[in-house]
């Protein structure tokens, strides 16, 4: 009995010794201390995030246009112009809700990423729904973001069941602190959200290579649907990924954020969105306690470095 308990339960002491970060400590010591509330809109609104990112020369899908009011919805074809492929999403959406990926169209019939064909009217209706708040928290009125399509690199195809893998970087005071890749599964419905059942693969912060992987908070080594060996995963252009994370700090001033980055086969890593309350499952994916890492950054990492220097410092294993 006791043995069984000690198998499923760790003692607080054990967690503490391993530097595991709990929810209460995350909220109290990191989020509320490092993230000023007034800065939240910078990450909660994708229009603002995107505009800022462009100013800071952070690679992000280019903004094609925004729609703020219902009466502008009919201008959609003008806004799209010559673009044959584009993405429509709510500015304040989350969890992938309300995202429409169009890969082809002739102004009347639109083909989505999944191959489904929809009419102009349906696209119009979708925009109208976003504007009236169907996908935003609490049903607030929202804006529509129209941006360029990301052509995902195919190197992760074996590692993901449908869906698009992305890299999540926890950035603490500008230093990339911990990273993981999120891979969609059948269970997650092709979406890369861990709580929906996506696989999280912890990545070595200095190499971008797989360290460890979890599914629903339990360790795994093989992708449940594609059977790919997750430990073979290695993210190319690793430095560029970290650069984005590091710059996101300068851009927002938020001391504790999660940056979501996808890999475009031509343009390289692109920032999709930022999150001011990133989850804690990343520790399980890495098999490393986050508090330990953050404390180390607090204690030993130099201040007053610029974004590039911070990445250098991290890539060098926390030394000059």
């Amino acid at each position: 009995m006791f043995k069984l308990l000690s198998k499923i339960f760790a003692t607080p002491k054990e967690l503490h010794e391993n530097g595991v970060l709990g929810m209460n400590a995350r909220n109290y010591k990191f989020i509320s201390k490092c993230n000023k509330r007034s800065l939240y809109p910078l990450v909660d609104n994708k229009v603002i995030t995107k505009t800022l990112a462009q100013e800071h020369e952070i690679n992000t899908p280019k903004l094609i246009g925004i729609i703020e009011y219902q009466h502008e919805a009919k201008n959609i074809l003008d806004i799209i112009g010559d673009y044959k492929e584009f993405v429509i999403k709510p500015a304040q959406g989350s969890g992938g809700r309300g995202i429409l990926v169009v890969t082809e169209h002739n102004k009347e019939i639109f083909t989505t990423a999944s191959g489904r064909k929809i009419t102009y009217n349906e696209v119009y209706q979708h925009i109208s729904n976003i504007l009236s708040g169907l996908y935003s928290l609490g049903g607030r009125y929202d804006n529509v973001v129209i941006e360029e399509l990301v052509h995902f690199s195919s190197i992760f195809n074996n590692f993901s069941y449908q869906g698009v893998p992305d890299v999540r970087i926890i950035v603490y005071k500008g230093f990339p602190a911990m990273t993981m890749m999120r891979l969609a599964t059948k269970m997650s419905g092709g979406r890369a959200n861990l709580h929906q059942g996506a696989v999280g693969v912890g990545l070595d912060i200095s190499t971008g290579k797989a360290l460890n992987a979890v599914l629903k908070d339990k360790p795994v080594t093989i992708h449940p649907d594609t059977n790919a060996n997750l430990m073979d995963l290695a993210v190319p252009l690793w430095r560029e990924h970290l650069d984005i994370g590091s710059k996101a700090y300068d851009m927002t001033g938020l001391g504790y954020i999660g940056a979501d980055i996808v890999l475009d086969k031509d343009k390289g890593p692109m920032m999709l969105e930022l999150n001011a309350r990133p989850g804690l499952a990343i520790q399980i994916a890495n098999g490393i306690g986050l508090q330990k890492v953050l404390k180390n950054i607090d204690k030993h990492y130099p201040k007053n470095l610029n974004a590039k220097e911070r990445v250098d410092f991290v890539l060098n294993g926390g030394k000059f």
Binding site: A10, T11, V20, N24, A25, D217, G287, I288
Partner: peptide, 20 residues
């Protein structure tokens, strides 16, 4: 509101981190 210790359920959630 100043309790920054682990939540009871986190003891099982993060157990894989410790048990290896």
């Amino acid at each position: 509101g100043t309790y920054t210790g682990y939540r009871l359920l986190e003891l099982t959630r993060f157990a894989p981190l410790v048990k290896g």
